[in-house]
Computed example of a mutant assay.
Amino acid sequence: MPNLPLTLAVITRNEAACIARCLDSVPFAAEKLVVDSGSDDDTVAVARAHGARVVQQDWLGFGPQRNFATTQCAHDWILVLDADEWLSPELAAELERELPALMAGDAAGALLRRRTIYMGRPLRWYRPSVGEKLARLYHRGRARWTDARVHESLRLDGRAPVFKAPFDHANNPTLVHKQLKVLRYSELKCRDWLDQRKPARMWQAPFVYLLAFLKDYVFRLACLDGWRGFLIAQTAASYALYKRMRYYEMVNNPASVAEAADALEKHRIEH
């Protein structure tokens, strides 16, 4: 497969178990870049063995880390994947076929459809996990990641066609991984709220939980995926509730910000 003037950019920390699959799924990229934030497993060695150039950068938050990665790429066109994501063979073939024309035009980027693997197999009905459209391919002169510490998004300045075939995402190998991610993501989101001086409104908490559960279980069709769908909706609602409880604690006990950061670092709860 010929190389295209494109960089695959992946941000990592302790992703030795899955980084090879991610990198190997993009054989047409002229450059593979891994921006690592202090892995103490074999992530760096595995990434280099699978053709990646590795740059070390202390963790900045998801948006700033992705913007830093953008500056390190050798090519203007960039494909972003997380370490637990990979291109399906169908999408790899579609990109190889369509990218030359896209990159020669004035498009800002493209949207890719993501298919989620949950508890060992794809979800069939839950809407965010079946063909969810994400901006993951872009020209760095026509796009920029938001500076949010978590739940960042790519802002495209121009048209962005949609590719048909999906890429895959191994969503939280276990519920333990999910709960650890909830702790990390909640901490980052609450730090953003602190910066914005958002009021802590705990009276909203019960309604936030109920509405978040109904949104995912009913309106996003998680109910049709059986008990796996119930677990998806419950963990999403619990995350929405926990963020507000944790933010209330931060506002009322500012010392807890540093104490929690120390605890997360001590137990190496990953990004």
Rank of each mutant, 00 (worst) to 15 (best):
V218R: 04
L99P: 02
V176G: 12
L134C: 14
L231P: 03
H169Y: 08
Q196V: 10
L81F: 07
F163L: 13
G51Y: 09
L241N: 07
R220P: 02
N3Q: 15
L87T: 00
T7Y: 04
D262E: 13
H75Y: 14
D168I: 15
Y242Q: 11
P199H: 14
K32G: 01
T70V: 15
R144M: 15
H50Y: 09
I78V: 06
A170V: 10
L221V: 01
A212M: 04
R155F: 02
N172D: 12
W145C: 11
L60P: 03
K164D: 11
S186N: 06
R155N: 12
W77T: 03
D192G: 10
L123H: 06
L81Q: 02
L91N: 02
W77P: 07
T146E: 08
Q57E: 13
A135N: 11
L99N: 00
R127S: 11
W59F: 05
A160F: 04
Q234C: 08
L156Q: 09
W145P: 06
P100T: 12
C18R: 15
A108Y: 05
C18M: 13
S153W: 13
H139Y: 01
Y126L: 04
S186C: 10
E15T: 14
S88W: 14
R13P: 02
R121C: 03
R127L: 15
L99D: 06
G109I: 05
V10W: 05
L231F: 11
G229H: 13
R184H: 10
D36Q: 02
E152F: 03
A160T: 09
Q179T: 09
R97L: 04
I78N: 01
D76C: 00
A16N: 10
H151C: 12
E249A: 00
D42V: 00
G105C: 13
Y185G: 09
H75V: 05
R149T: 10
D58V: 07
P100Y: 05
A92V: 01
D42Q: 06
C190Q: 02
Q57M: 14
A260L: 03
V44Q: 02
A52D: 01
N67I: 03
E98W: 09
G229D: 11
Q179G: 08
G120H: 00
V26K: 04
G120W: 00
S25Q: 09
N14S: 14
D40W: 00
T71P: 00
A205K: 11
D147E: 13
D106P: 03
L91F: 03
F219R: 11
R115Y: 06
L91H: 01
L156H: 12
V80Y: 01
A255C: 01
W77M: 01
Y217K: 09
Y185M: 04
D41R: 02
Y242E: 10
D216N: 11
V26W: 04
R97F: 02
A49K: 09
L112M: 08
G63H: 08
G105Y: 10
A237Q: 12
Y185S: 08
Q56R: 03
A148Y: 13
G61Q: 08
L137Y: 06
V150M: 11
Q179K: 03
K243W: 07
C18I: 14
P166I: 14
A258T: 11
A200H: 11
R21F: 01
P64T: 00
P5W: 09
C18Y: 07
N67E: 05
L8H: 12
F207L: 07
P89A: 11
F230N: 05
W77L: 08
S37T: 03
M119T: 10
Y242G: 10
W203P: 01
K178D: 05
R197P: 05
H267N: 11
